[in-house]
Amino acid sequence: MLVDWLYVAVFGVVGVLLAVLPLAIVWLISPRGEYPQKLLTYESGVVPFGQAWSQFNVRYYLFSLAFVLFDVEVIYLYPWAIVFKELGAVAFMEMFVFLAILFLAFIYAWRKGALEWV
């Protein structure tokens, strides 16, 4: 069991090393030359003004908020999906109630316009 996750960890570490390897080769053999225009941010040829790190549309946050809600729901569904065959009709009814409540919340969010992109 623990060995399984050892493999995953080794995959992560070796993956990083193997991805760094071509970057190291590039560092060794690539040409280098710096002048101000080259290090400029590319914005279709126009000299960029200001920073890109500024305020942006709040809608992206709204969707991530709705996502957190439903992602937690999905996490609860996983263990249920594995064992519900053994637990029988009671487990199914309980999950039905759980999903129905969430579905109501979903319809509420929909009606309130939280899922609209304006």
Binding site: I25, V26, I29, S30, L39, L40, T41, Y42
Partner: peptide, 12 residues
Amino acid sequence: LLQKENIVPRNA
């Protein structure tokens, strides 16, 4: 691509 320079923009 292995022979290309890795450019990091000044503001990045």
